[in-house]
Simulated scan of single mutants.
Amino acid sequence: MNSNTSSNQRITFRKGHENDLPEMRRLFTETIETTCRNDYDEKQRIAWKSGAENEERWLKVIKEQYVLVAVLHNKIVGFCTLDQRNYIDLLFIHKDHQQQRIASTLYKQIEDKAIEQNSMSLAADVSKTAKPFFEKKGFHTLREQLVSVNNVHLTNYKMIKKLI
Rank of each mutant, 00 (worst) to 15 (best):
K161N: 08
A124C: 08
S121M: 11
N151P: 10
T12V: 12
L146I: 13
T35G: 03
K15Q: 12
T105K: 12
T34W: 05
Q100R: 10
L122R: 03
I102T: 06
S104I: 11
Q145E: 13
E64R: 00
A114K: 02
A123D: 13
N54C: 09
E30C: 06
K128R: 14
E23A: 14
L91A: 06
A123K: 10
M24C: 08
D39S: 00
A114P: 14
E42R: 00
T29N: 04
R57V: 03
R26L: 12
E23N: 11
L106I: 01
N150Y: 02
T31G: 09
Q109P: 03
K161V: 08
E56L: 14
R57S: 05
Y157K: 07
T81F: 04
S3Q: 15
R10F: 14
I115Q: 11
G138D: 04
T34V: 11
T105I: 11
A130D: 06
Y40P: 09
T12M: 10
A123I: 05
S119H: 12
A47D: 00
R14Q: 04
I102A: 03
N54R: 08
I32K: 07
N19E: 15
Y66Q: 02
I164E: 12
E18M: 14
T105D: 09
Q44M: 06
Y87P: 08
L146F: 11
I46C: 02
Q98G: 01
E111W: 04
V152R: 10
Y66R: 01
T105M: 09
N118V: 08
D89T: 03
M120E: 15
N151K: 14
L146W: 05
G138M: 04
L122S: 13
Y107F: 15
M1W: 12
L142Y: 08
T141P: 03
A52I: 01
S119W: 05
N8D: 13
F92T: 00
K108H: 12
P132R: 02
T35V: 15
Q9S: 15
V147K: 15
K162I: 03
E116K: 10
Y87C: 07
H140A: 04
I46D: 06
F134K: 10
S119G: 12
Y87S: 12
K137N: 15
T34L: 12
L21P: 15
A123F: 10
V126W: 10
G78D: 04
I62L: 07
K95M: 02
D20W: 00
Y157N: 11
S104P: 15
Q44V: 03
A52Q: 03
L72P: 04
A52N: 01
W48K: 01
V152A: 02
E111K: 12
N156W: 08
Q44S: 08
D89I: 02
T105W: 04
E42S: 10
V147P: 05
Y66W: 05
V126L: 11
M24R: 01
L146Y: 10
R25C: 14
F13L: 10
V152Y: 05
D112R: 06
D96V: 02
L106W: 00
